[in-house]
Design a protein around this nucleic acid. Structure first.
Lengths: 145, 145
DNA sequence: AAATAAATGAGACTTATTCTCATTTACTGT
DNA sequence: ACAGTAAATGAGAATAAGTCTCATTTATTT
């Protein structure tokens, strides 16, 4: 995992430092979208708060980190790995879990057509989009038991 | 507009107070999603900051206000009126404008099917969803000129 | 291994949102 | 219309997420 982290950093010509490795490792290990709070507690104080935010900004700058706000207003962060294809998010309003969801090809194709239309209609250049779903996890969610 | 505001409040059995009327009027008049900053400046100090937030929370509680976070992390708020049908949002990353967008029936039908599948797959009860698009407005946006 | 630029830690600072509490306002029954 | 009561408000203090400062440490280049 350390080697993965080093590799990621050097591939993006970002200097390899301890805090960056620790943050990347934590993100890689968790493997799912994670709130900054959770990330902080996984790091157990090993990285200063200011540094954590700086590292996250660095990762955003090199486009390997996605950041969004969950319905309960906490900031959620997620690594974008090469093998991690286009996907969307499902939020549990109860436990706060965020799950990656892939939707069907046909759906994505249709969504792209819709986006085309919106671009024309509003004279916009649309660069990105996001589908979010909210609800309650039932039996299977480990957090809500 | 005052009468609309009073009506909205009484229909939801919420007591009719000046700050609530002022906030509703501002939202009705603007007619589009608006940041809290903009809303505050429209109110020109007529409503105390703490009261503004309380009123917004009241409106959320009675489900006539939608709140979300724009890509530049400002909080955006929008009235949900009866005649205001299901729609999504288009954000300009340059000027911060938020535009309501309706997508085609076929798309929504297909999205609902996808949601059905996600519900089954993850054993979730999905209660809501949202499609967000990000980009840059070109000629037509009044804010970006 | 030295020189230099970049990154870090610690804590101050900023700013959005919530909270507290004394005062005011809206609603109820008479 | 009026008094009584509960709810809402204003003003500013408190909280908390995120940024900034600056002196020190670390990574990288030579």
């Amino acid at each position: 995992m350390i080697e993965d982290s080093r590799k990621i950093l050097s591939e993006h010509s970002v200097s390899i430092t301890n805090p960056r490795i620790l943050v990347l490792e934590a993100l890689l290990e968790f493997g799912n979208p994670i709130t900054i709070d959770e990330l902080q507690s996984k790091l157990k104080g090993a990285v200063a708060k200011s540094t954590l935010y700086r590292v996250l900004n660095d990762l955003k700058k090199i486009k390997i980190l996605n950041e969004f706000t969950s319905p309960d207003n906490s900031t959620v962060v997620e690594l974008i790995l090469e093998d991690h294809s286009h996907h969307h998010h499902l939020f549990c309003s109860d436990c706060g879990e965020v799950i990656d969801v892939e939707l069907s090809e046909e759906f994505e194709t249709m969504l792209n057509k819709e986006i085309e239309n919106v671009q024309k209609k509003f004279n916009f250049e649309i660069t990105d989009h996001r589908v979010e779903m909210f609800g309650l996890c039932t039996e299977e969610c480990s957090n809500c038991k």
